[in-house]
Structures are given as structure tokens and as C-alpha cells.
Amino acid sequence: MTSPILVIGATGKVGSRIVSRLEALGQPVRGASRKSSPSFDWEDQSTWAATLAGAETAFVAFVPDLAAKGAPEAIRKFTEIAKETGLKRLVLLSGRGEHNAQASEAIVQASGLDYTIVRASWFNQNFSEGVLLGSLLEGYVALPAHDRKEPFIDVDDIADVATAALIDERHNGQLYEVTGPRLLSFADAVAEINAASGLSAQYSHISLEEFHAALLPEVGAPTADFLHDLCAEVFDGRNESIGNGVQRALGREQRDFGDFVKRIAATGVWSAQA
């Protein structure tokens, strides 16, 4: 491989890990984000061609999420521009149980590009470096999730699968549904974090309306509306099953949530501000 592997979303949880893995393997890699040069912005199509120029393989993470209303049309336009600029293969990060995500997957599958789709469940790392960390440190996690269970997945597993797909053409045409090995409710997850870290956080179920109202002053209407709609869609039990994508792609078992909790607790992330 002579052209660099393009990683769109290189500063995100998954993208940053993919960049590190590719660099460690000695693979040529070029990260793209709003802060890169050239910059890449999903809301500005004029930035796409310059970022894609010279790349034959790309990892694609859509912002804010493929569940967003405009995602399928953006992915359709992106694949058209990607083909025009010479891209041949892409690895798409997708979301489990999301209608617009699956519509976006279908667009990629019909694009004429070689592809691998990595369809992921909720990230373990949302508790340690994502949207739930702040409230967790304040002693609570409040979501409209009832007692639904999720097969939380370690982002390192997602990055391992995506990296393998980027450098090995044997993964072409595959859809990997990647999850963790266990189903846990958010209350279960918080309890495991408490036991390992010494925190005493509580999980509370709140209504979708309460969730939206709490988000509005923090993130604004567009993001609050999106998160409201996403939770309304996926917290209905549709994701209460275990996928085998990690095993199929890598030939090993998934990382367990308990191992993630022990590892992160040892770093002090959950005690530094407690």
C-alpha cells in the first residue's frame, strides 16, 4: 500500500485509536477532522474532495451519528465524491439498531466501492471519556433507558476490527456486528464501576421529556433533539442480544466490561474529581 489510509474522525474515540494502531504497524496514515489540514467537515461538502485526494482506503465515522436524519443523504454524496477522487475501499463505523444507520450502510453496500461495515453497540468508554463521565463523577447517570440491557463494547475492540479491515482485503464485503460478551443494564454498569472505583453513583430512569429538558440548556436544541430521538429509537429492547463480529473478524473473544472497569479504575479517572 503506497497511498495513505485516510481516517475520517481521527480525533474521536475510535478514529484516534485506529491512527495509533496503523502508525504502530508502520502503515501510512492521514488523519482528518475539522482541525486537520486540509480540514474535513461533514457539514461542509466543499472540504470533502481535498481530504479524499490521494487516498484509496478510508475509515469513515460520521458526526454526530449515522442515526441523524441527514446521515443517509450525506453518506450518499460522500460515496459519490469518494469514487470521483479515486477511493476504492472504505470501512464504515455504524450504529446498532438505528434506522438511518442501516440506510447509510445500504448506500455504501450499493456504492460500487469495496467496503466493510462495523456496526457497534454502546461504548464502554462513554463512561470514562465520553458523555456519561461528568454526571458519573457527580454521582448519577440519568437516561431514558428503563431497565433495558446493552452489550456494551470496548472501543479498543472496535478499533482492532476496523484496523484489520483497513489493511486486509479479506474483510471486504463483511458486516461485523460488534458487541461485548454480556448484556448489562445501565444500573448494572454503574454498580460495577462503583465496586471497582469507590464511587457511589446511582442510575436513574427518567422520561424522554425529562431527558430532553435537561439537555437543552447544556447542548442546545439540535443536539438535544437528536439525542432524544436516538434514545426513543434504540431503548426499546432491540439491542438486547450479543453479536459475534469481534470473533468473526479477529478470531478471539470480546473484551469484557468488567475488565474495562478494572483497567480504568486503576488509572484514577473515576476518582480524580470524585
Rank of each mutant, 00 (worst) to 15 (best):
L136R: 01
S204E: 14
W122N: 14
I264A: 09
L199R: 13
Q254D: 12
Y140H: 11
A145Q: 10
W270T: 05
D44K: 12
A101V: 00
G173V: 00
D156W: 00
L133P: 02
I153V: 15
I107T: 02
A58F: 04
E218Y: 07
S185F: 07
T57N: 11
H212R: 14
T179I: 07
E177A: 03
V155D: 08
L133H: 01
D160I: 09
H171Y: 15
S39Q: 08
S37D: 13
F257A: 05
E209D: 15
L227K: 08
S33H: 03
G220E: 02
P38C: 02
V261T: 05
I8E: 04
D114A: 12
A106T: 04
D225W: 00
V261Y: 00
G26P: 09
W42R: 06
L92A: 04
A224Q: 01
N124K: 02
L137V: 12
N100R: 12
F152C: 06
Q102E: 14
G258E: 05
A232S: 13
G31I: 00
R89Y: 10
A55F: 03
S20A: 15
N172R: 09
A74D: 13
A249T: 10
T179L: 08
E23L: 08
A142Y: 00
A266T: 03
E129N: 15
V219K: 05
R76P: 00
V141F: 00
L216Y: 07
N126T: 05
D236T: 14
S33M: 01
A165L: 07
E253D: 08
A195M: 01
V246D: 07
L93E: 12
E138Y: 05
N194G: 06
P4Q: 01
I153S: 09
G54E: 02
H228M: 06
N124S: 14
R263D: 14
R182Y: 15
N194V: 05
E23D: 11
S185I: 03
R119V: 06
L227Q: 13
D157P: 12
A165T: 07
G180H: 03
L90P: 03
L250Y: 08
I206W: 10
A224P: 01
A61L: 14
D229C: 02
D259T: 13
K149F: 09
E210Q: 09
